[in-house]
């Protein structure tokens, strides 16, 4: 049924405690910074050479490359955040991310690869909450001196039918 590449580990490997801790902290910061509307700080979690992409499971399963959002470096990512701040209009809301524990897939090009499920709820200014998006992150991060930095984030949203519109990041 699924054409999404299997997420089985590349080879047997150990994940050092330090890496688990750093990635756990990174994921917590990732969700909470967006939820606190600190989008500029969220951008700062990324390496300069980074990639952020939102795709939908419907496209991935068909092997289709379409993107909802694709920033292939940090400048594009901060352009998008600037645009949200000053140019775009969107539904006024608060975000709330619930991110599951990471599953490590191995190391590649000096970065740890892992994935995690997410649920993103939106609450309007009168307090009505709704499920906005569920899916998973496919991420890569470098870990040094106990801190992890994002090299790439691919959001594969099961929720391809976007409610209203997609502005603030997943």
């Amino acid at each position: 049924m699924s054409a999404v590449p299997p997420a089985a580990p590349l080879a047997a490997f150990d994940v050092p405690r330090e890496v688990r801790d750093a990635v756990g902290d990174l994921l917590a910061a990732y969700g909470l910074l967006i939820d606190e509307d600190k989008l500029e700080d969220w951008v700062a979690l990324f390496d300069d050479a980074c990639d952020y992409k939102v795709v939908t499971r419907e496209n991935v399963e068909q092997g289709l490359p379409n993107v909802l959002i694709w920033c292939d470096n940090k400048d594009m990512l901060s352009d998008r955040v600037h645009s949200y701040r000053h140019v775009n209009e969107y539904n006024l809301h608060w975000d709330r991310h619930v991110i599951g524990p990471p599953r490590f897939l191995g190391q590649q090009d000096g970065a740890w690869r892992f994935e995690a499920s997410y649920a993103l709820f939106q609450t309007d200014l009168e307090g009505a909450s709704r499920l906005f998006s569920v899916g998973r992150y496919r991420m890569a991060a470098s870990v040094a001196s106990g801190a992890a930095r994002l090299r790439s984030v691919e959001v594969v949203a099961d929720t391809g039918l976007v409610p209203s519109l997609l502005a603030t990041p997943i």
Binding site: V67, L68, D72, N88, E89, Y90, L165, A167
Partner: peptide
Amino acid sequence: RLISANLVGPAGLVSMEDGEA
């Protein structure tokens, strides 16, 4: 074309507003 897709669709930089309006 895929980079340009940032402009259109539900998250499009020149289209997202329609949903809200």
